[in-house]
Amino acid sequence: MLGALAVVIISLFMVIGITFLKGGAVLLEKPDLVVTPPGSRYLLGGDGGFLHAVLGSIYMVLPATACAAVMALGIALYLQSDYAGEHVAEIIRAVLDVLWGTPSIVYGIFVFAIIVYLQQRASLLAGIVALTLLELPVITRYADEAVQMVPRQLKESTYSMGGTRWETAKVVSRYALPGVTAGILIGLGRGIGDAASVIFTSGAGGTMPGGLFSTTTALPVMIFQQASSCYPSVREQAYAAACILILAVFALNVTSRLVAGYLSRYVPGGR
């Protein structure tokens, strides 16, 4: 037991530690990498930074998370006993669990197939769709748990005051908000770190994002490109990009905890 724990903890610290040590050194030396657009020969050891991937990730993951969160909350509210029958809800939950475990490349290929069918090219929009599909089961499962934790008596009181299902759903969402926020964060974390679902859908160029219908590179995809480069200077920058990615996830984590704490000040035991 202890040995297993030690292996896990040590390898985790090594992953984060080495990324920070190597990536941090690069970032300290050339901090403007993050805000510089890539040159035309960036991936071949040329000038420039990886602003395109930083922006690409933001442009892709934020709308995807927003879409997934809205749909997830809707599904979670629907899965309550006052809407869906218990039998239906059980089936939907089982399907969501399967979707959660589905490898992200499957979502990537699915959206890729749609793109091909529509005779379109890889684009930011397709990347957003793929990430939304990827995040949806994760966020829904968390939102569902949070909604189910809402005391039945609270719903009954709201109904007893003459609330409609919509008004009750609003109260329930408010009560479940801290849990839903946690779910959104975890979904976002999954989306921002995923390469497989976007590599076919949003593309893997070396140019700045140019709108919904043009190729956009996400950070994980670019890290993959950099790390497989034959130029040592480019491989070094993979650490820097990974470092930024980890920091971003960490920052999101802290912010959303603060937000959730603020939002849950009315929930008993929420703060």
Binding site: Q153, L154, S157, T158, R174, Y175, Y266, P268, G270
Partner: peptide, 10 residues
């Protein structure tokens, strides 16, 4: 209806 345990709205 007033429930057994109070559940204030959030």
């Amino acid at each position: 209806l007033i429930a057994q345990k109070p559940y204030p709205l959030p």
